[in-house]
């Protein structure tokens, strides 16, 4: 069983997928908080120059209207970009992985990640990601 594959044209980022193509905010935030600034910086420096290309990939997926499904590889790519949103906070905002003096992230519970909230979202506003 191969790990998380990325679309062919993003083969250069493939080694990041296993650690950073994470499907939930909790996992992405957790990974950010568990990483050193050095690790975060190196991922940041590789993803920032590729971010526009990833966004373009996302645009193409919807170019012919809303797709019914998104290929697994593209999902992984999108989650990688979502991880950049987390990593960007550490690099661009806080200068360290966690919020400076911040309230304990674990206790700040995301209601929007609860199964009941997600089920409701899918019912009234189905999303692809």
């Amino acid at each position: 069983m191969r790990g998380k594959l990325l679309p062919q044209e993003f083969a250069d980022l493939q080694d990041l997928a296993a650690d950073w193509s994470l499907s939930t905010e909790r996992e992405r935030q957790g990974k950010r908080l568990a990483s050193s600034m050095q690790e975060l910086r190196s991922v940041y420096d590789r993803l920032v120059p590729r971010a526009e290309a990833i966004l373009e990939h996302m645009r193409l997926l919807e170019a012919g209207g809303k797709p019914k499904t998104i290929p697994e590889e593209s999902h992984n790519l999108i989650y990688l970009l979502y991880s950049l949103a987390e990593i960007g906070q550490a690099i661009e905002v806080h200068g360290q992985p966690e919020v400076v003096n911040g309230f304990e992230a674990k206790r700040w519970v995301a209601e929007h990640e609860s199964p009941a909230w997600k089920a409701f979202e899918q019912r009234v506003r189905p999303t692809l990601v």
């Binding site: 935030q29 949103a85 906070q89 905002v93 919020v99 309230f103 992230a105 700040w108």
Partner: peptide
């Protein structure tokens, strides 16, 4: 979301 969430953590 990440930005506002971190602001709330502050």
């Amino acid at each position: 979301k990440c930005g506002i969430r971190d602001l709330w953590l502050e």
